[in-house]
Amino acid sequence: MSEAEKIVGYPTSFLSLRWLLSDEIANVALHLRKLVGSNHPLLKTAKSIIYNGRNTQVFGLIILLISKAAGHLNAKPVEEDKAAGVLHSQRALAEVTEMIRISNLIHRGLVNINTNEALSVESSELNNMTFGNKIALLCGDYLLSNSCAELASLRNQDLVFLISSAVKDLCQAEFVACRDNQNFPIPSIPPENRTGYALKEWTLLNVYGAGSLLGKSCEATLQLAGHSKEIQTEGYKFGKHLALAWQASLDLGLCINKDKEILHNLCAAPIMFHVEHDPSILTELDKGLESVENIDYLKVLEIVAAGPGIGLTKELIKEHSQKAMEVLNVFKESDARKALSNIIVAIGDF
């Protein structure tokens, strides 16, 4: 990854520095301190954004890499960032994409406060949760509104259309599948004819949740560089398939490593494939309809491991990786293209 970062000029974690330095965020840092010691997940989200910056900013990095791999046609000289071979507008777009992704991550990290339960919860804890939600909501709004303004300043309405469509899809993702009290997804009951159920549901959830944003951002960056409609569409395909390959491999990792995090991602590909294969696993999964914490995840993963889910997921990763790789062949040989293909290979390496 850091090899790839060198190619585009500087570490992508730099992307986030600008918004971290604003007054509003300085204010938030003060408020966050009040939350230390409480259970609000905003702290976890914040930690992963700040300390794990490298891993979480992959989207921005990929956009810069594909920008460089594709090159640009008839750019105005002032627009060009000679050192890195990426346009300023493309860098801004990468930043916007990251802001949107993090904003969505933060909004997804809100806590649902059940008013009936609230009576039984200690009031200080309740206050923490309410206050944490407030800060989380505002932080997400802050990033979203800034990305909106930054996008507008690029003076390109096709770009605004693409990126706001991606934001729309991110929001829709939170409504796909069944949900527990905290809005964590649980596979929905398959229809009578189960053929294709797993793939259809999983793809919908993850195109909305990740593929659309990366795909449309890649499409947008090629548009900024003045490439043809055909190439732009290839860019969309590349981003979408890469995001799906990546998600499938994350899903697989959770299942193989018996990671407890799987409870927050029960619509992971291996589980979905298993539900299609044998819906009786839903008896176990539906114990989580109230709260996913009530599910014996080790038991679920054991059932999945014995079925076809793992194998089918490996196929899925391969399929999406291949499709992403095919797009790369459109571009001529370069460091950036090599870096992208390395990323794809790394995703398929499990």
Partner: peptide, 14 residues
Amino acid sequence: SQKKVAMAGDYILA
């Protein structure tokens, strides 16, 4: 729930 309401707000904006 709060999470869905927050998402719906983002959705309208988008």
